[in-house]
Design a protein around this nucleic acid. Structure first.
Lengths: 151, 151
DNA sequence: CGCTTGCTTGGAGTGCACTCCAGCGTTCTA
DNA sequence: TAGAACGCTGGAGTGCACTCCAAGCAAGCG
């Protein structure tokens, strides 16, 4: 039945789901799903498109994720929040796989992402200002309506 | 030829495109496209799905946007930046069309959106922290490599 | 042994937000 | 008054990021 568990759980809380039971270093796909908030489907899909490093397999061919894999998924989760396209994350993953000589390129990619995040925050703060103006307008309108009702 | 003009112009700058030539109060669809950064396609689509108020037409049936319409599009643009689904914006538009008795509901919708924006900003700041740690790691690695090369 | 639960695969399907097309009418400039 | 540029419509197509399906294998349990 795939055990979607808590699929993403829209309610607020620790961003990356539950904390991992430390000491362990081998997780099944459904454990990783629970830990990251991603579905097992998505985890397999990430692997297919080259967003994951090579994932270990059990003697029967089932995926066994390590703590290192979870760290990678945590980073991917953060990058996803910035709105970075999956294709760009795949590019980054390729650079990591390619070895140490890609440090420079990775550095640049991260810096560009950082700039994006900064301007995104600025945008959101601009939006917040608009929202606050509208909200205080509606608050006033509400008060006016209320006083009209009690008059 | 549809005159996409400056389609969205990924480069930084004034978020809502150019400033409107004030005094005027009738804009063709391509003027609005240039002003908002949306395409004419998207403007027509917004109308079809009920995201726009009724748009005036010229005697031959062409759209003539007013400054009020531009203001609405500016708000929509801001809400879009927050990641609000178009369906929710349509809901808000419906409330506006429904009249004054929906003030309360609109107020709540805006407040919920405000909370979303706040937590989005917090998320992005968390991501920024992660990014900064990674960036300084790569900066150090770069320096180490450089000193190795000159050694 | 049968049953349930969990995992495997390649490929097809979904939902969102556009994006474009064909075929036609209108408006502007030379 | 020709020709280019712009606008109209309904409907089809696109790209992204998942999301699901069917058929089958493997382990644990009463």
């Amino acid at each position: 039945m795939e055990t979607t568990g808590t699929p993403t759980d829209t309610c607020a809380g620790p961003p990356q789901g539950n904390r991992r039971p430390d000491g362990a270093d081998k997780y099944t796909i459904s454990e990783v799903a629970a830990l990251t908030g991603l579905t097992a489907h998505t985890l397999r899909w990430y692997e297919r498109i080259g967003l994951m490093p090579h994932i270990d397999r059990s003697h029967t061919g089932q995926r066994r994720y390590t703590n290192r894999d979870l760290d990678w998924l945590a980073l991917v989760g953060k990058l996803r929040l910035t709105g970075m396209p999956v294709a760009d994350m795949v590019r980054y993953a390729e650079l990591v796989r390619a070895g140490d000589h890609t440090y420079g390129e990775r550095f640049e990619l991260l810096q560009r992402t950082r700039e994006d995040v900064l301007s995104r925050i600025a945008e959101l703060q601009g939006t917040l200002a608009v929202l606050d103006r509208k909200i205080s307008f509606y608050a006033d309108a509400g008060r006016a309506l209320a006083s009209e009702r009690t008059r």
